[in-house]
Write a protein that binds this DNA or RNA. Structure first.
Length: 670
DNA sequence: AAATCCTGTC
C-alpha cells in the first residue's frame, strides 16, 4: 500500500503544534463515587484502569431492590464505616435474587474481587443458591475480575449449564488472554447441543484473533454464517478485527463492507488494522471517512490513528489529528497520550514528544518507556540514561522494554560501562532478559570494538542465540572490518534464518570493502539461489501535506529532470568541501564511474533533492526511509547540512539522524 | 434476573 502514499494530497489543513500543545486538555477526573459504594468498595486505592475510565457510571443503586430499599442503604452508609454485608446480616434483611445480581454486577463493573467473593458466599447461604441465572452472574464476576480459576470452579460445580454459562466462561478466557482455553470449549458446547449465539461468537472470534494463525478464525467465521450471526454488529466487528489482526486487510475490508449495521467499534477495528500494518495513510483516510458518515471517533480511534501517523512519520497529519481530538473534547487519557507522544517522536519532533510527556498528569510505565524510546531513537543517549535514572528514583518499576530502551541508548552512545551496569541491574529488578536484551549487549560490545567480548558473551549466554544475536555481531564486524569473525557470524545467521536478506547484504559489504569481489559475488549468488530478496528501498518526504515517495533510480517522477540536476549540482559542490563518494556499498561489477552514478540516485538522495527544490527555504527537511540509510548517503547528508546550513532529519528503520552543520546526532553509529 | 466487538512503549 506504499503506492497509496505516493503524492497523495491530504485534504486537511496544517495545524501549528504549539497552539495545540498549549491547549491540550489535561486528563481525566479522578473517580470518586458519592454513594455508599465508596464504602462498599473498601478503602482500596483506585488503580489507573479504574480512575481513567471516562464518564464512569457512578450510580450505585438508585432503584429499590426487593425487600431492601434504597433509603436503607443510604441511611446506613452515610456515616461511613458500615459494610454492605454487615448491613445485610446485622439488620437481618433478606436480599432478593435481583439484589444479588445487582451486587455481583457492581463488583464486576468495579473489578472488586474480594467483595464479589463475599457476595458469592452470602448467596450460597441463601435460599436462591440454586438459581442458575445468579450462578452465571457469579461465574461472570470471577471471570471479569480475572480469577479464571474460581470461575472455572463455579462452572465445574454447576449441575446444569446453559449456553450463557458456557459463553461466560469462553468470554472470560478470551478477555484474559487465554485464547486456547476459550477455543477448546467450543466443540464440547456444540456436542451438548447448546446453540451458540452472537455473544458466543464475538468472544470466540476475539480468542481466535489472538492466535497467530487464521485457521480457527476462519472456521468460526463459517459457524457464524451457519448459525446466521454474521450480520450482527458485534460479530461483524469481531470478524473485521480477527482478519485485520491476522494481516488479511482485504478480507477485513470485505466483511466490513458487507456489514449492514456498523458502529464505532467496527470502524476502530478496521483503522487499527491498517495502523498495525504501517498503512498510516489508509488509517487517516478511514478516520475522515467515518466522520463523514457521522460516526464519532473514540479514544480507540485516535490511538490507532496516531499509531498510523507514527508509522508513516507524517508530522503535519498527526498534528492535524491531534487538533481534531482537542476540538472533539476527548480527554488525553494515558493510552492516547502515549500514542500521541510516540507519534511526535517517530515523526521527528522530539520537542513535541517531550511537551506531551510533560503535560501528562499521570505517567504509567508505558509513558516512560515511550519517552525513553523517543530519546534513544533521536540519539539522545545521555538524556535517555538520565530519564531512566529519574524513573527509578521516583519509583516507577522498569519492565523489560524500559531496560531495552536504556541499553539501546547506551549502545548507540558508546556508553559501554553504563550499558553493562544496567544489564546487571535487571537482576535486581527481577526482570528476566529476553533475547532482545542479549542482542543489544552484543551490539553494545561490538560497536565499542570489543568483538572478542561480544563473541564470548554469545557463547556464554544462557539461552540459545538467535539469528538476531549473530546478526548484531555481524554488524559489528562490518563496522570494524573484521572479515574472519564476520564470515563466521554470517554462517550462523544463514543457518538460523536463511530467508533474511540483511546478513547476506552485510556479508557482501564486508567482502566488498575488503575488495574481495569474488566472495561478494558468491554471497549474491547464494541470495539469488535461495530466493532471498532485498526489500526494495524507498524514502518519502512530506511537504505541505503531500507525502512524496521515491524509490532508487526513480525515473517516473514528474520532476525527475529537476531532481537529477539538483543532485548533480549539490554533489559537485559537496565534493569541493571534502565529500568522497563511498562506493563500497554498491555491489555491482561496474567501473567506478558507473558505481558513483548508481549511488547518486539512492532514494534518500532523490527525496533530499526534491525537498530542496520544493520545501520552504530554510525549513527543516524530514525524510523517512524504509531500511537503514547507507553509509554514502549518510556522509553526503552531513556535507549537505554544512553546505546549505540546513537541518535535515532522516528517519530510518532504527533511529533518527539529525544532520546539522556537518554532523549527525548519531555520532556515526547506526 | 445473566453473557459480546476496537487502543500504547520493544
Amino acid at each position: 500500500m506504499r503506492k497509496g502514499i505516493y503524492s497523495r494530497v491530504c485534504t486537511h489543513p496544517p495545524v501549528i503544534s504549539n497552539a495545540i500543545l498549549s491547549s491540550t486538555r489535561s486528563l481525566m477526573a479522578i473517580f470518586v463515587s458519592p454513594h455508599f459504594f465508596t464504602t462498599f468498595a473498601t478503602s482500596a486505592t483506585l488503580t489507573n484502569s479504574e480512575s481513567e475510565q471516562e464518564e464512569e457510571d457512578e450510580e450505585g443503586f438508585n432503584t429499590s431492590c426487593g425487600v431492601i430499599q434504597e433509603k436503607d442503604f443510604l441511611r446506613k452508609t452515610q456515616n461511613g464505616k458500615l459494610h454492605l454485608l454487615d448491613l445485610i446480616d446485622n439488620d437481618r434483611m433478606e436480599p432478593d435474587a435481583a439484589l444479588y445480581n445487582k451486587l455481583l454486577n457492581k463488583c464486576t463493573q468495579m473489578s472488586k474481587l474480594k467483595e464479589g467473593r463475599m457476595v458469592h458466599t452470602h448467596f450460597l447461604n441463601s435460599q436462591f443458591k440454586h438459581y442458575q441465572v445468579i450462578q452465571n452472574t457469579v461465574l461472570n464476576m470471577y471471570a471479569k475480575c480475572g480469577s479464571l480459576e474460581e470461575a472455572r470452579r463455579v462452572f465445574d460445580e454447576m449441575p446444569t449449564k446453559d449456553m450463557v454459562t458456557w459463553t461466560a466462561l469462553i468470554t472470560g478466557y478470551s478477555q484474559n488472554d487465554r485464547p486456547e482455553e476459550a477455543l477448546v470449549l467450543f466443540p464440547p458446547m456444540l456436542r451438548l447441543d447448546l446453540k451458540p449465539n452472537h455473544f458466543t461468537f464475538s468472544s470466540l472470534l476475539k480468542a481466535s484473533a489472538a492466535r497467530p494463525s487464521d485457521r480457527e478464525g476462519r472456521q468460526i467465521h463459517g459457524f457464524c454464517l451457519k448459525y446466521g450471526y454474521d450480520l450482527n454488529v458485534y460479530v461483524g466487528s469481531a470478524l473485521v478485527d480477527m482478519y485485520a489482526r491476522c494481516g488479511y486487510m482485504n478480507e477485513a475490508m470485505f466483511v466490513f463492507d458487507g456489514m449492514i449495521s456498523k458502529n464505532e467499534v467496527s470502524w476502530n477495528a478496521l483503522i487499527a488494522g491498517y495502523a498495525r500494518k504501517d498503512e498510516g495513510e489508509n488509517a487517516v483516510q478511514l478516520f475522515m471517512e467515518m466522520q463523514r458518515k457521522d460516526f464519532k471517533p473514540t479514544h480507540f480511534t485516535y490511538s490507532s490513528v496516531f499509531t498510523g501517523c507514527a508509522s508513516t512519520g507524517a508530522l503535519e497529519q498527526g498534528k492535524w489529528v491531534h487538533g481534531h481530538m482537542i476540538k472533539s473534547g476527548l480527554k488525553l487519557i494515558a493510552f492516547v497520550g502515549n500514542t500521541l507522544l510516540d507519534m511526535y517522536a517517530k515523526s521527528g519532533s522530539i520537542e513535541d514528544a517531550k511537551k506531551v510527556f510533560d503535560r501528562l498528569i499521570r505517567r504509567d510505565v508505558v509513558s516512560w518507556n515511550s519517552m525513553l524510546s523517543a530519546c534513544a531513537q533521536h540519539g539522545l543517549g545521555k538524556e535517555t540514561v538520565e530519564r531512566f535514572e529519574e524513573m527509578l528514583r521516583i519509583g516507577v518499576e522498569p519492565n523489560g522494554i524500559a531496560f531495552l530502551c536504556v541499553l539501546t541508548a547506551c549502545s548507540h552512545a558508546g556508553l559501554l560501562d553504563k550499558g553493562q551496569y544496567y544489564f546487571e541491574l535487571m537482576k535486581k529488578y527481577l526482570v528476566e532478559p529476553d533475547v532482545s536484551h542479549y542482542v543489544t549487549i552484543v551490539d553494545l560490545l561490538g560497536r565499542a570494538g570489543r568483538l572478542d567480548l561480544a563473541e564470548r558473551f554469545i557463547k556464554e549466554m544462557p539461552i540459545e542465540p538467535t539469528a538476531a544475536v549473530w546478526g548484531a555481531l555481524l554488524g559489528a564486524c562490518r563496522m570494524h572490518k573484521n572479515m574472519e569473525l564476520g564470515a563466521y557470524a554470517a554462517e550462523r545467521v544463514f543457518e538460523l534464518d536463511p530467508y533474511d536478506s540483511g546478513p547476506h547484504v552485510l556479508l557482501s559489504n564486508i567482502y566488498a570493502s575488503a575488495g574481495r569481489w569474488s566472495d561478494a559475488a558468491k554471497v549474491r549468488k547464494m541470495m539469488r539461489e535461495s530466493g532471498v530478496k532485498k526489500e526494495p528501498a524507498c524514502s518519502w518526504v512530506e511537504i505541505e501535506n503531500v507525502v512524496h515517495l521515491f524509490v532508487a533510480n526513480d525515473d517516473a517522477h514528474p520532476q525527475r529532470e529537476d531532481i537529477r540536476k539538483m543532485w548533480e549540482e549539490i554533489s559537485a559542490r559537496i565534493k569541493e568541501i571534502g565529500y568522497v563518494p563511498d562506493t563500497s556499498h554498491v555491489l555491482l561489477f561496474v567501473d567506478q564511474q558507473e558505481r558513483e552514478t548508481k549511488l547518486q540516485y539512492h532514494s534518500e538522495k532523490l527525496a533530499l533533492a526534491f525537498a530542496l527544490l520544493n520545501a520552504p527555504p530554510g525549513s527543516t527537511i524530514r525524510i523517512k526511509k524504509n531500511i537503514r540509510v547507507c553509509g554514502d548517503c549518510h556522509t553526503a547528508f552531513k556535507f549537505v547540512s554544512k553546505l546549505l546550513d540546513r537541518e535535515i532529519i532522516l528517519r530510518d528503520t532504527n533511529r533518527f539522524h539529525h544532520f546539522r552543520g556537518g554532523f549527525c546526532s548519531c555520532g556515526d553509529y547506526w
